[in-house]
Amino acid sequence: AREMGVIAAMRDGFGFIKCVDRDVRMFFHFSEILDGNQLHIADEVEFTVVPDMLSAQRNHAIRIKKLPKGTV
């Protein structure tokens, strides 16, 4: 199932999404941004959540798609 959120932080090559449906900041890597979009803080996005290979306690966001403002 796809989830929605807002870009909360951007770093060098990765960032975090503030999720709508869960009280966490979800890690993502820039390589998972679809359509070659440039994302910025406060952009609204949808994404798929998958378990982190390195840590069973953590998840991360993949297949991130920018949404029109006002969607979330």
Results as ranks from 00 to 15, higher is better:
1 A>W: 09
1 A>G: 12
1 A>Y: 15
3 E>F: 10
4 M>I: 11
4 M>K: 09
5 G>C: 10
5 G>V: 08
5 G>A: 00
7 I>E: 00
7 I>M: 04
7 I>V: 14
7 I>P: 01
8 A>K: 04
11 R>S: 13
12 D>S: 08
12 D>H: 06
12 D>G: 08
12 D>F: 00
13 G>E: 03
13 G>R: 04
13 G>H: 08
14 F>E: 08
15 G>I: 01
16 F>V: 13
17 I>R: 01
17 I>C: 04
18 K>S: 09
21 D>T: 14
21 D>F: 01
22 R>I: 02
23 D>L: 05
23 D>P: 15
24 V>S: 13
24 V>K: 15
25 R>F: 12
25 R>N: 15
25 R>M: 15
25 R>H: 14
25 R>E: 15
25 R>A: 11
25 R>V: 10
26 M>D: 00
26 M>K: 04
27 F>V: 12
27 F>A: 08
27 F>I: 13
28 F>W: 04
28 F>S: 06
29 H>Y: 11
29 H>K: 15
29 H>Q: 06
30 F>V: 09
30 F>S: 09
32 E>W: 02
33 I>F: 04
33 I>V: 12
34 L>I: 13
35 D>Y: 09
35 D>T: 06
36 G>K: 09
37 N>A: 15
38 Q>E: 14
38 Q>Y: 05
38 Q>A: 12
39 L>A: 00
39 L>F: 06
39 L>H: 00
40 H>K: 11
40 H>R: 12
40 H>M: 14
41 I>H: 13
41 I>Q: 07
41 I>T: 10
42 A>N: 13
42 A>W: 10
42 A>M: 08
43 D>M: 01
43 D>Q: 01
44 E>M: 03
44 E>G: 01
44 E>W: 06
44 E>L: 06
46 E>L: 00
46 E>Q: 05
47 F>S: 02
47 F>A: 01
47 F>R: 00
48 T>A: 06
48 T>D: 15
48 T>S: 14
48 T>L: 04
49 V>D: 00
49 V>C: 10
49 V>E: 05
49 V>S: 06
49 V>P: 11
50 V>S: 12
50 V>C: 11
50 V>N: 09
50 V>H: 04
51 P>T: 07
51 P>K: 15
52 D>H: 09
52 D>W: 08
53 M>I: 15
54 L>K: 15
54 L>F: 12
56 A>G: 13
56 A>W: 07
56 A>T: 12
57 Q>I: 09
59 N>A: 14
59 N>P: 10
59 N>K: 12
60 H>I: 13
61 A>E: 06
62 I>D: 00
63 R>W: 08
63 R>C: 13
63 R>P: 01
63 R>V: 02
64 I>N: 01
64 I>C: 01
64 I>V: 11
64 I>Y: 02
65 K>L: 02
65 K>Q: 09
66 K>M: 03
67 L>F: 01
68 P>C: 05
68 P>Y: 04
68 P>A: 09
68 P>Q: 09
68 P>S: 06
68 P>K: 06
69 K>I: 09
69 K>D: 05
69 K>M: 10
70 G>A: 05
70 G>R: 05
71 T>A: 07
71 T>S: 15
71 T>P: 03
71 T>G: 02
72 V>W: 02
72 V>E: 09
